[in-house]
């Protein structure tokens, strides 16, 4: 579904934050990107969505090279980002925010499919139906995250990229959102999720990438990798350590032997 190879990207005139990163998401897969704050998860998500230009490398989505495509074009092709920090139109109502999400649908069947998608969204997040006339900015953080996901779903995405969906949310809400994502994946949606909460992300994923400082040009990665595998870096939570030893765990970054082998 999505194959990105050799991605380099950075902010402004600054140095590369991504160093030849590779990301592959197969059809129907749910893939997690985990890693520390500042490791480059969001940078990958933003580069894949076109919010940051790729300085080099290729992004191929469904056989089409989208490396130079604008963000909106990628969204119209079904490569959709739920950005970090939600990025809603705060003064517009929930219903209007969701309406904007229907832009990628083909014009001829927009009305019909928008209604179908709205039905799905209201089923997944009943609270949004209740609050559809309220300004999105007046909702709680968790509800706003729901609006952001729902907005993306309105356009019938084929690959959903979630950038830090749990940021600033209560654990219960986070769990709810991940359950929804799992369910969507069960229905056939491919998902790439960038998440700091490694245990949670991995328990809902078929694959996981570990984004570590090896993807950052300035730091040596190998020691980081090892200490992480021993469970020293991510956290004290046992679950995380166990999760990190999943068999399909793929490393990213140019120094990763697995990446080279693949």
């Amino acid at each position: 579904m999505l194959e990105a190879h050799g991605l380099r990207a950075g902010y402004g005139k600054g140095p590369d934050v991504l160093l030849d990163a590779d990301v592959v998401v197969g059809t129907g897969e749910i893939v997690a990107m985990i890693g520390l704050n500042g490791a480059g998860k969001s940078t990958i998500a933003r580069t894949l969505a076109g919010l940051l230009p790729a300085r080099s490398g290729r992004i191929v989505f469904d056989g089409d090279d989208l490396t130079r495509a604008t963000t909106d074009e990628r969204a119209r092709r079904g490569l959709m980002l739920v950005p970090e920090g939600r990025e809603l139109c705060a003064s517009m109502t929930v219903a209007e925010n969701l309406a904007v999400g229907t832009v990628p649908l083909p014009r001829a069947e927009r009305r019909r499919r928008a209604a179908e998608n709205l039905g799905l969204v209201h089923e997944l997040f009943p609270i949004l139906e209740e609050k559809r006339r309220q300004p999105a900015g007046s909702l709680s953080g968790g509800q706003q995250q729901m609006v952001a996901i729902a907005r993306a779903l309105m356009g019938s995405p084929r690959l959903l990229i979630l950038d830090e969906p749990s940021l600033g949310l209560a654990p219960l809400l986070v769990r709810e959102i991940f359950q929804v994502v799992s369910r969507l994946n069960g229905d056939g949606l491919s998902v790439l999720v960038a998440e700091q909460n490694a245990a949670l992300a991995i328990s809902h994923s078929s694959q996981a990438y570990h984004i570590e400082l090896g993807a950052v040009s300035t730091t040596d990665a190998t020691s980081e990798q090892r200490s992480l595998l021993k469970g020293g870096v991510v956290g004290d939570d046992r679950d995380e350590v166990v999760a990190l030893q999943l068999p399909d765990y793929r490393w990213m970054g140019r120094r990763s032997p697995e990446a080279v082998a693949r």
Partner: peptide
């Protein structure tokens, strides 16, 4: 919100 519009296509 330019970003919101762009990511929505």
């Amino acid at each position: 919100n330019r970003t919101a519009a762009a990511v929505s296509g």
